[in-house]
Every structure is written in C-alpha cells, then in structure tokens.
C-alpha cells in the first residue's frame, strides 16, 4: 500500500491555480524527486501533502499512523532566540539524549550538539534539520529544496547522505529540487511539474521526455552528464590543495 497518495489534487493561491489535476503516490522505500521551474507549484504540492495548505479540490490519503519526517526549505533562525542544536531537536517533541545523539551521528554532525543554531553554516544546518527529521524513525522523509545555498559538491554529498539514510532507515523520500542535474543520480523516480504533472518516470525516461525538454531545454542533459561524470570519480580527484582546503571547511561531515 502507498504511504501517501493524492488524487486529482488542486491547490489555489487566491485566484490562481498553483497545482491542479495532480495524482501521485509514494511507495515505501522509493526516492521521488519533484522538479520544475520556479513557480511550478512543487513546494505547494509538498506543503499540501504535509498538511500545511488545504487543497481546493481532490483528496490526500495517508497510510494509517504515517510517520513523516519533514525538512523545511529554510528555518526562521532569529538571533533573538537562543537555541542550541540539542534543544532544537526537542522541538516540537522532547526526545532522549541517546536518540538525539544517534540522529546527529547518522547525519555526521554529532559534534554540533551544544552549538547555537544561529552560529551554524548552511551545510551544518541542513544536516541538523535532517537529524531532527529522522528522530521519529519516519516512514516518509519529505525535503523541500533542502540544499538551497549549498555549492554543488556539498549538495551532491547531501543527496548521497539521503540515499544512505533511505537504505539504513528503510524510509521513502519525497523531495523537491531545482538542482535537477545534482539530484537525478540519487533518485528512483522523477516527477516533472509545471502546475500539473508534465511527465514522470526514472531519471533517464524523464530527461528524454519532450515535455521535460520543453521546460528545461536540452542544456540540462549536458549538466546531468557532467554531474554523472563527477559522481563516478571521487572528490579526491581534485588535487588542487587550496581548493581541497576550503572544501574541507565547508563540508559539515568533517567537523
């Protein structure tokens, strides 16, 4: 049985239809990526699925007692709110120290436990958000543009981490991304959106589909090839010592 499914979903922002005629389902343990140009309703669809916006029409069906882990696009980190990483993991439900540490270790940021949230880098924060999302051992992990502000190697690392988590936790993953070239390699199924679903299927099928090429052009196909090339080779292939130095600093996993 599907974890979550939508039938003929329509979501409106005032008079405009942000999402319409969307039917989709997420099966256990699959990684599904929603891609689409800006304003194509990808985030709106995600927010409807987690219950943050109410659909104007259509139905959303969730598996009974579905556990969802949600990674928001960004956090409203106000420096006026003092909050350590550990205390953040207690929101909105308190968890034991053992559970919190295990989650931080899984996402490679256990050293950040006592740090203030407002002092973290973008990459560190994303991993902390991911740690928070896996606290309840989710069946479905939902990520909204989770790698915004990360550079390409950092994004690629992040998506690899998602894949690892899927394998270890056995959860399905639903994410929204505009970095299709980075995300494609780590996904089982792609849903290409522009208000409605233009096309869907495996990354290879979607990138070859005319509807996808209409939206993104053929240039992204080249970027995908480039990315695959880089993905096949290890990051160690980069021998410029200065570059590696900065790279290590930006990489949260090495903290």
């Amino acid at each position: 049985m599907s974890l979550i499914s939508a039938e003929n979903l329509e979501v409106r922002h005032g008079a405009t239809r942000a999402v319409f005629g969307v039917s989709m389902a997420i099966e256990p343990k699959e990684i599904v990526t929603i891609v689409g140009p800006n304003g194509s309703g990808k985030s709106t669809l995600l927010r409807a699925l987690i219950g943050a916006v109410h659909p104007a029409a259509g139905t959303i069906t969730r598996a009974p007692k579905l556990r969802v882990g949600y990674v928001p696009q960004k956090l409203q980190i106000d420096p006026t709110l003092p909050l350590t990483v550990r205390r953040f993991l207690n929101l909105p439900k308190r968890v034991s120290s053992a559970v919190a540490r295990a989650a931080l270790a899984r996402t490679g940021v256990e050293a950040l436990e006592g740090r203030q949230l407002s002092g973290l880098s973008g990459g560190q924060l994303q991993r902390v958000l991911l740690a928070r999302a896996i606290l309840n051992d989710p069946q479905l992990l939902v990520l909204d543009e989770a790698t915004q502000g990360l550079d390409q190697p950092a994004s690629a690392d992040f998506y690899r981490l998602i894949e690892t988590l899927r394998d270890e936790l056995g959860c399905a993953v639903l994410m929204v991304s505009h970095e299709l070239h980075v995300v494609m390699s780590a996904t089982d199924r792609v849903i290409c959106m522009n208000g409605h679903i233009c096309c869907e299927g495996t990354p290879a099928v979607v990138t070859a589909a005319p509807a996808y090429r209409d939206l993104f052009g053929t240039g992204t196909g080249g970027a995908l090839a480039l990315y695959r090339h880089r993905h096949d080779h290890d990051h160690g292939a980069c021998n410029d010592p200065d570059h590696r130095h900065t790279h290590d600093h930006e990489e949260p996993a090495t903290v």
Binding site: R47, G51, Y70, P72, I77, D78, F88, N90, P92
Partner: peptide
C-alpha cells in the same frame, strides 16, 4: 511552550508535526 517555539522556527515544520 513547545509548539510556540517550533512555530517561530518554521510554520511548515509545525504543520508537518500536526500543530
């Protein structure tokens, strides 16, 4: 308390948690 703090950080996150 917990709900109010979570909502400061992200309303979507709060929605996802059923708040």
């Amino acid at each position: 308390w917990q709900a109010l703090l979570a909502e400061i950080l992200s309303t979507d996150l709060a929605h996802a948690a059923g708040l």
